[in-house]
Design a protein around this nucleic acid. Structure first.
Lengths: 172, 172
DNA sequence: GTATATCCGAGTGAATCAGTCGGAATAGGC
DNA sequence: GCCTATTCCGACTGATTCACTCGGATATAC
């Protein structure tokens, strides 16, 4: 339950790639898809990056050698913004969408569980506000470097996946 | 994004109703559906309550005057259990399901955003662990009594919906 | 002008959601 | 023993959403 769609997953990976190359030349979708393991889905990425651009999170240059870049440094991008751009407002229930929720929920006897959903929503937004794109990039770099560089990909990842993960340095 | 389905919504309402009548005679689904404003969906409720029973949260008695009751007092039921029973494990991404997540996610280059989803998942479970069925019932009773008893349903609910809601007494 | 990109609207097959349907089993009241 | 109220159970279905795909237009470097 409470799933994020592949839109969110791919979109975040795309942003991580842009963060990794922040400051350089624009990255094309085909470059991104290769280095993030999304080879087959370039056409789909187009759709996602559109939403990110429309929300002002990335800027594009067209034509040959064109591509995308972050419109702000990764440290100044909260994951909440990114996911909102990709998937719309955080709303565990229709009656608990961000912003005004009274309007919709005046129906019936007022959605007896309103408070619960608002509580969940606030927890999610807080969690996503506390993490920046730079944090996710850092965690990702760490994981990459821990994997042996000479192609021995067989190291089990289990021991490092506990609650004391890299993201706990994000200060929440 | 991050939606809870109507399964979760109706199922929680059902549980709130059972909590309100805890200690009395078993409640039939038709009674529940009437008092919770779910008149048309009795057949659907059947399906939901099944999941709740199979997870040991409610007990049933069959035949005439039969129905359902909570198998534990509302104070001892966390909303996390209830929602898990209704909607399955809390997993914002396939690679961040509760319990073991390494197995599935060993594919590709190891899901660069794993940490983020785990972080979100933990925030959600913490939020749902902090609230008991009794808390939701209490918040609901309060709302009911605040609505004028003589049918003047027109009072706007807005001022009381801020972050300092009743659920903040749950101690998180 | 050609190759490489982004841009844009529309379409589509598969999966999930939100129920519905038909009937079997169980228990209380007469 | 029958009738009624109820839970139990598996299967079915229409609508919606998801996860893409397609075809083409537009812009820019060389």
């Amino acid at each position: 339950m409470l799933r994020v769609s592949t839109r969110g997953e791919y979109g975040v990976r795309l942003m991580v790639d842009l963060a990794r190359h922040y400051g350089g030349t624009p990255r094309s979708l085909s470059e991104i898809s290769q280095s993030e393991g999304l080879e087959l889905k370039v056409q789909y990425l187009e759709q996602l990056v559109r939403a990110l651009r429309e929300h002002g999170l990335v800027e594009s240059t067209r034509g040959a050698h064109g591509g995308y870049r972050l419109s702000r440094p990764p440290e100044e991008m909260r994951m909440s913004e990114i996911l909102r751009a990709l998937e719309g407002p955080i709303a565990p229930m229709i009656c608990a969408t961000e912003g005004e929720m009274e309007v919709i929920c005046d129906r019936l006897d007022g959605c007896s569980t309103k408070f619960l959903w608002a509580h969940v929503r606030d927890a999610i937004t807080a969690a996503l506000d506390a993490v920046t794109l730079a944090d996710v990039l850092r965690a990702n770099e760490r994981e990459r470097s821990e994997r042996a560089p000479n192609g021995s990909r067989l190291i089990p990842l289990s021991p490092r996946l506990s609650k004391s993960s890299a993201l706990n340095t994000a200060g929440h």
